[in-house]
Design a protein around this nucleic acid. Structure first.
Lengths: 188, 188
DNA sequence: TGCTGGACATAAAACCGGTTTGTGTCTGGA
DNA sequence: TCCAGACACAAACCGGTTTTATGTCCAGCA
């Protein structure tokens, strides 16, 4: 036990990152159902027993990955404020989806699996909730968060599946155009 | 071949309805994966060969059912105009979901299957598109339809899963409150 | 004309031992 | 902290067999 008890150790971070990256590469290569922990560890150059020091199973690694992504998106908020200040993570998310379309086709696309899709929805929903539904908010805030998250995820799914020709800026603009009034309604 | 070539015959309608109803009851009883055509026919009191006179397979019956629902929702539009005239099918959909929560928990709830969920999404999306994206509309209309459909489905999913205590009126009001501005934006 | 039961070929699922592979846990050592 | 190796156990695989479900066809009936 050093200063911080877990994620501070650089070695830990290294192996966790390696596993996460291996997951990403195998995910777009084979899809969720056809990837196992062994191959994951081999790809990551990590001992198999080490895997279990960090995660309980495949799915835990996945949610860990989405936790990372969520944290990263949350962090993206501050630096260069976008035109609008509501839900600043969206800019980062859209760009990230764009840069990694292939991966996200395995995550939210028509041919994606159930688990992955569900976890991604959850992640987005949490981000939206943070923004729009404070801890003890009313039902409208919670329901509204689901509304917005569902809309965003479906928009992204449309984009990666059949919205090929459109830029991240266009999608972002459309999203904010449609969502800003909703946010205003909810946040009261 | 009488006046109309297919659905006009009352006998046809009877058996198709019987099969649809059997599907509904087995759906909330066992879920999509664990129901087969034999039991379906038995439940419907219909000869197994008759099934194939009407549908190619299980999934065709399902989409047929959603087609019926879509047609019914479309028809619901006219009679007593709701407060707002945009997407009048929503009123009927929300009420229908409310009356058949148990069924819809098997369709869009957390424990629902992939196929059913997907087909339901498609149905809703088509209804929204009819309303908001005319035949040769621009990409914003199409993407916007997906946006709204995704939002609506997710809102309904939240409702049947964890929004127990709220009335159809509340949900409808929230939906329109959040969606009307979006429609206005898109429809231009 | 639409529904039916029965017959049919075929595809899919269940079953069954025996085998292999993957999982999850625990070592001792680097 | 990580690793390799060993372990018990569950899950997947397997060829071969049986059972069940599917999809098609038909003669007969309402």
């Amino acid at each position: 036990m050093t200063a911080k008890n877990k994620s501070s150790d650089r070695r830990v971070q290294r192996t966790r990152d390696a596993l996460r990256d291996a997951l990403i590469s195998l995910l777009e290569e084979r899809g969720w159902d056809d990837l196992n922990i062994q191959d994951l560890c081999e790809r990551a150059n990590v001992g198999r027993s080490t895997f279990y020091l960090h995660f309980q199973n495949k799915e835990e690694l996945l949610v860990g990955g989405f936790d990372d992504l969520r944290a990263w998106l949350r962090a993206q908020s501050a630096p260069e404020k976008t035109a609008v200040d509501a839900m600043p993570f969206v800019r980062g998310l859209i760009e990230h989806v764009h840069e990694q379309r292939n991966l996200f086709r395995s995550i939210i696309g028509r041919r994606s699996g159930h688990v992955v899709q569900k976890r991604f929805r959850e992640m987005v929903c949490q981000l939206v909730e943070e923004e729009v539904a404070p801890p003890h908010a009313g039902w409208k805030q919670k329901a509204g968060a689901h509304y917005i998250a569902g809309a965003l995820v479906e928009l992204l799914a449309w984009w990666v599946d059949s919205g090929k020709g459109h830029t991240a800026d266009e999608v972002e603009e459309l999203f904010y155009q449609l969502t800003l009034p909703s946010i205003r309604q909810i946040k009261v």
